Amino acid sequence: MINRRRFLTGLGGAAVAAGAGGALLANPPRGGAAAATPASGPGARADTLPVSIVNETGRFSDGEVLVYILGTNIDTEEQCRVTADGEMVPVSESDNTDGGYTDYSIPLPADGSPLALPRPMSGRIYFALGDKLRLKVVTDGNGRPALQTPAGHVESDPNYGVLYDTFEFTHKDDGMFCNSSMVDQFSVPIAIDLRGAREQSTGLLVDGGRDAIFEAAAADPDLSPLIVGDRMRLIAPSHGLDQGLFPEDYYAPYIDEVWAHYEQNTISVTTNEGVFSGRVEGGRFVFDGGVTPFDKPSTRDVLFCDGALAAPNDGLNGPVAAILGAGFNRSTLLSHDQQPTTDAADFYRTDISNHYSRILHANTVDGKAYGFAFDDVAGFASYIEDPAPVSVTVTLTPF
């Protein structure tokens, strides 16, 4: 299964800080496809998937919506953009022609034609409303071209004042895997409809959901500093912590309670590989079955699902780390000694919890959202996949 932890391995997980705050995509970006021929139409290329972009913002005209398709060619590991005809083209420093930045933008086709998403590719589709994104190609530590992408949580980033959001995907021979992620920020509400072996949808907010999210955040003293501008975006607590906008010791009391509790009690974690029992011994969470012990995490580790809670794609340590990370974010580790917890009614019930994620989930129609990187544990992420995709529709829903 390709989940966001795989996305992060190919994209953000290996990204490094770049200049004023943008990240270098770990793999090739693609720049965009305009009125490309759908894969199912006459003369269509079998390696592309039609992606329709629907503008229902009610605030921006189609002419004010710019699309950027950026990511990595899975075969070559080059960072690429997608051109207007659906071709993956490696990024190059020579593309920095627009005032020192690239112009990989694709206007929405006036006739409503779908864009063409090639394969094999993993990346993001960026949507910028009312302004261009300022993207720059630089040289990474290995001497290869790499794209600096927006960091909406960094005030010095050239895209800080641009209203934008993203759709994440991996499109390859065995299917389409995609999500509407809010792990970094919440800004433009995005709904996804994926059709193929079956019809699936996710990401749709309840009526008035965007306003409700910002109102709930504004009423929370820990989250209110994360609101940028006049409800332009809500920064995730993880990035807010790094910017000094969220308490760096927020989770410390809860982490201490969990550690003390499991010095005296046993937790059971169920993964596809079996059931693993663990206790805190010598200051580390020690599990049976060959699982590597976990150091005591920090607040930052919990919010980023990284550091002491990093989850390698090894089938053993990774799933246990992910379940622990989800338990911390959903604050279920003290109330349930059998993990993962699968009843959403038990999530976020303590004062110390990922209330950013709670607010997002509370305002989606299907109750699913990607509020943190391990939100796919037990199937609560706004993530869908299909082994035989026919089309994808991404809707920018009403503000």
Rank of each mutant, 00 (worst) to 15 (best):
R300E: 09
P237M: 06
N55W: 11
G12D: 14
R144G: 09
A373R: 14
S92N: 13
V302K: 00
V302T: 00
G10D: 06
C80V: 14
R210I: 08
D193L: 13
N265L: 08
S181P: 14
H171C: 10
D165G: 11
R4Q: 07
D157F: 01
V258L: 00
A116S: 14
T83K: 10
A151S: 12
N27C: 10
G203W: 01
G152L: 06
I190W: 05
H355Q: 08
S277M: 09
Y254S: 04
T364P: 02
L334M: 09
G278H: 00
D306F: 11
G21R: 04
D230Q: 11
L245H: 03
G325R: 03
T72N: 07
L163P: 06
N329D: 10
E199V: 12
D173Q: 13
T102D: 05
T271E: 03
P38N: 15
D314L: 00
T37Q: 09
G203S: 01
V392W: 03
T270F: 02
R59Q: 14
I384G: 06
T149G: 12
F399S: 09
P312F: 03
S382C: 13
T48H: 10
R349N: 11
I192W: 11
G318H: 05
L163C: 09
V291R: 02
S105N: 07
I69R: 08
G209C: 07
T395W: 04
H171L: 14
D376E: 15
E263T: 11
L334D: 06
D343K: 12
G161A: 12
V65H: 04
V286L: 00
I384E: 06
D98N: 15
L11Q: 12
R330E: 07
R284S: 11
D103Y: 01
F287H: 05
F380C: 11
S180I: 11
R349Y: 01
E78W: 05
G21D: 03
S187Q: 09
V162E: 04
F60H: 12
D222G: 15
V228N: 08
A344H: 10
P398G: 06
V16C: 05
V228Q: 09
D242Y: 07
L135Y: 10
R330N: 07
V206A: 09
T270M: 07
G43E: 01
S268T: 07
Y164Q: 08
V365I: 15
A151P: 02
N73D: 12
V365Q: 15
M121R: 06
L333T: 01
L24R: 12
D249Q: 04
S61M: 08
A84M: 11
T57S: 13
A218H: 02
F285C: 00
E385S: 15
F287M: 14
G86L: 01
Q185F: 07
Y262E: 01
H239P: 05
Y164M: 04
D375P: 04
F294A: 00
H153K: 06
T270N: 09
L117E: 11
T97M: 11
K132H: 13
